[in-house]
Amino acid sequence: MDAWSRFLDTFFKWELIQRYFPAILDGMAVTIEIAAAVVITGILLGLVLAIVRTFRILPISALIVIFVDMFRALPPLVLVLLVYFGLPNIGINLPSFAVLWIVLSCVLAAFAEEIFWAGILSIPKGQWEAARSTGIGFLNTLAYIVLPQAVRLTVAPITNRTLAITKNTALGMVIGVSEILSQATTGQSFAGNATPLTMGAIAYVILFIPVVVLGRWLETRFRWRRA
């Protein structure tokens, strides 16, 4: 067998592609479900935290900053293992996918809060003053004047950060969530062939390339002003 056929046989063996296709599809479904859940709860939580921070109640703001800093500084895998191994021993038994979802949501929330906060801060004070001086209340100013402008600036960085964090669903493999990588590595050890791994990689690329391209397009459309 020449080099090309050996390459194909190692990474693209047709029988294996057919055999493991359903498993990889199942994995994709799990990945998509968890990723979608993470995106929704993560961004919402991040937005809520940023809004709470605008009230400028010092002790609460400090707590938010601590939470945000911790989840930005710690590697997601460390958090996942902490929660996965630690909670059962104090009586809280969560299924693996729940652990993954909670950890990744908190991580996304932390990054999202910082991005939203920077966006809110970049709205000139004059906007607040103009609105408040016409009698519009604090929350309404936030809702109708400040946030709409701030969110526009944050679309690109939020998309890119969301992409980076949802890719961490692959960590589910380490704690037994049957997402793509898990299916792929199981298949690879059963079949003794790298084809299931290739399939897994391609599955991820199919899922995430649209988001990458979207992020790239958004960056050019809404330039997040740097320097």
Binding site: N168, M173, L197, V205
Partner: peptide
């Protein structure tokens, strides 16, 4: 660039570590 930003680092790592030996 887009390809390597779309692929989770863990997947890439496992592919290089566990997949390449097959080649």
């Amino acid at each position: 660039i887009d390809f390597f930003r779309a692929i989770p680092p863990l997947v890439l790592l496992i592919f290089v570590y566990a997949g390449l030996p097959f080649a």
